[in-house]
């Protein structure tokens, strides 16, 4: 296992796209989070205190874009090997295919968790700088963001976990589909199209049902710190839904890897 891990780490480290993708995870998360935070202020509410804005969720919204880089990295980690034929060398060196998949998952997830942590910390720092200027001040009932707050810590840590689970989802589907375009389209459809379609369905009960099972809307419930009772699904339960998606994808990938010729 240690050798497999070392091999996967070398493969990931020596591909220039991986480094760029980590930069993209951090950069997109921080930049989009800052842009969205900057566009929301208290002037649209009758009074600043009545805004009830979930500033933590707002600041961390950059992962909506940051997760794309995670998906690309995770999918390419598998499908690139099939594209180039490298997978045959890999499996010749490590014939236990389950070990290969586990090692890939460990290396990619660890990288994503590191990048995600940097992105989340950057977003929180940016939020602390931007929010007071938009009226979200302590006097108006919005204390500065701090990870010593239990809900803020849960949202921030949960966001990092969210990115890790998204990586597993991409990796699993990549191993199952073995095709860059197909796997990428599948994951992006699950993540992005499901919530858009859910919003357009005309029945609130079905909207809530779809939001409960769609991996992105369910998983990002972990970011909520206000109005938890109005969420379609609780924070940890939502992350659990995403974990179920990721687990299923990994299982599917493992089965396909075991059963099919490479």
């Amino acid at each position: 296992m240690r050798q497999a891990l070392a091999a996967e780490w070398t493969k990931l480290r020596t591909v220039s796209s991986a480094a760029w993708l980590v930069v993209a995870v951090v950069g997109c998360t921080v930049l989009l989070g800052s842009a969205m935070t900057a566009s929301v202020d208290t002037s649209q509410c009758p009074s600043p205190a009545s805004c009830q804005e979930d500033t933590v969720r707002l600041v961390l919204a950059g992962v909506w874009v940051g997760q794309v880089a995670v998906v690309v990295m995770a999918v390419l980690a598998v499908t690139n090997e099939y594209d180039t034929g490298m997978i045959q060398t890999t499996l010749a060196a490590t014939p236990r295919r389950g070990t290969v998949l586990l090692a890939k998952a460990a290396v990619v997830t660890a990288t994503v968790l590191a990048g995600g942590t940097a992105g989340v910390i950057g977003s929180l720092a940016a939020g602390r700088a931007i929010l007071p200027g938009n009226g979200f001040t302590e006097a108006n009932g919005y204390p500065p963001l701090s990870v010593t707050d239990e809900p803020t810590l849960r949202a921030a840590g949960g966001t990092v976990l969210y990115l890790g689970l998204v990586a597993l989802l991409g990796l699993g589907l990549g191993a199952a589909v073995r095709d860059t375009a197909g796997a990428l389209l599948g994951v992006l459809t699950l993540l992005y199209v499901a919530p858009v379609v859910a919003a357009l369905v005309g029945d609130p009960a079905w909207q809530a049902r779809l939001q409960k099972v769609a991996p992105m809307t369910a998983g990002l419930a972990i970011q909520a710190t206000r109005g938890l009772e109005r969420l379609p699904i609780g924070p940890w339960a939502g992350l659990g839904v995403l974990a179920a998606w990721a687990g299923t994808a990994m299982l599917l990938g493992a089965v396909v890897l075991q059963v099919r010729d490479a």
């Binding site: 969205m36 919204a61 909506w64 860059t180 375009a181 858009v196």
Partner: peptide
Amino acid sequence: RSAGAITAVILLLVLPQLV
């Protein structure tokens, strides 16, 4: 590159609706 092109187009088409 497929990965980059697919990601870019989908980001431009679908993400704005969510945001």
